[in-house]
Design a protein around this nucleic acid. Structure first.
Lengths: 189, 189
DNA sequence: CTGTCGAATTGATAAAAATCAAGAAGTCAG
DNA sequence: CTGACTTCTTGATTTTTATCAATTCGACAG
């Protein structure tokens, strides 16, 4: 059974047949390291599920790149305002290592909602979780120091520190690479 | 016609009868300045629409209070993870001036979704907008200086600076009241 | 009008984090 | 293995922002 199917079945707590129906709407695809899934400025007409690998979500701001998020496996992603409202995409999403994804096109997405009524419910829970998580992130950025943010990420996702270039993690935590380097050193003491 | 009804009709682009049906599920209520709509730690079993006034959403973090957001009129609010998943509430929501709100209880909310199928669609767009907005906020906190954040808020919601104690705005922008005071002074020059 | 209290400002100082500039270390193609 | 290239680290310095400590300002009760 495909990973997407397993994931839907277990996290949605649905029957195998329904999970299979849902996953049948998605097409498998691979991304080579460095390849883009979506690009800022272009419309985003698909949603993707990351089965393996890592994708960096980032944006150029002035002269520097800001990494908004590192997507890890078993998560869905899309450029939401573009996917839903047809606006230009806001984010670049680039594989930072070879990745396996499952992709659904916008037209099929609409068919999926019609074919599997409970999909709407699933999407709703997805959106709610994402929103709650973003609330948490904003709160952390408002209330925590760089050191506290580093320690929290290190506890929550220690594996990222082996797999992701540290400059990207630094940016995602709202600090410079130099600051992250010093915090790491400090932690070893 | 009540404000909630007007708001739903115009932003949802629905018929008057449907807007009226939706708004009939909500009960009016007033909040005196200082009164709490929801409290952190307690379950949140309602959603509210703010028709007039201002509500501060905040949380104690260590020895200081962090203002997450100032809710202005014509917005809905709830403590989402509590309202949907039944967890303890995460936020304090307190009127910072007398407020008029329309409240729907959780049980009625479920009935509303059943009575007005399109409500689900409305809720979906609400969630999507909120998520996109939070993405933007995270990005701004990652990429902008205190001064830039101040200028942006001052352009986007200048009226807040007359109505809301500046210490709350400072916190919401992730800076101290002293820093905000200095940035304001600097702006006048 | 006056005193009180919380909020805002101001100044002096300290801490945190960014910037700039080398180096060191790791990666990878050839 | 070697050289080129990128990433990471380190040190020195500057900038930004927080902290601490007085004032000053404003709203309001009496």
């Amino acid at each position: 059974m495909e990973q997407l199917e397993v994931f839907i079945q277990s996290s949605f707590q649905t029957e195998a047949t329904e999970a299979q129906t849902i996953s049948s709407f998605f097409q498998p695809r691979t991304l080579k390291k460095g390849e883009f899934l979506f690009r800022a400025g272009r419309p985003c007409n698909a949603m993707a599920f990351l089965a393996a690998g890592l994708i960096r979500i980032y944006l150029e701001a002035g002269d520097k790149e800001v990494t908004q998020w590192i997507l890890t496996k078993d998560y869905f992603t899309t450029d939401l305002s573009s996917f839903v409202m047809g606006k230009p995409g806001r984010w670049n999403m680039q594989a930072i290592e070879d990745a396996e994804i499952w992709v659904i096109q916008k037209e099929d997405y609409q068919k999926l909602a019609a074919a599997v009524p409970r999909w709407i419910e699933f999407e709703r829970m997805l959106l709610i979780h994402c929103f709650v998580y973003m609330e948490e992130r904003v709160f952390n950025l408002l209330s925590m120091s760089a050191e506290e943010r580093f320690q929290q990420l290190f506890i929550q996702q220690p594996d990222l520190f082996n797999k992701v270039p540290l400059q990207y993690l630094a940016s995602m935590m709202g600090m410079t690479p130099e600051t992250l380097s010093r915090l790491r050193k400090k932690m070893l003491t």
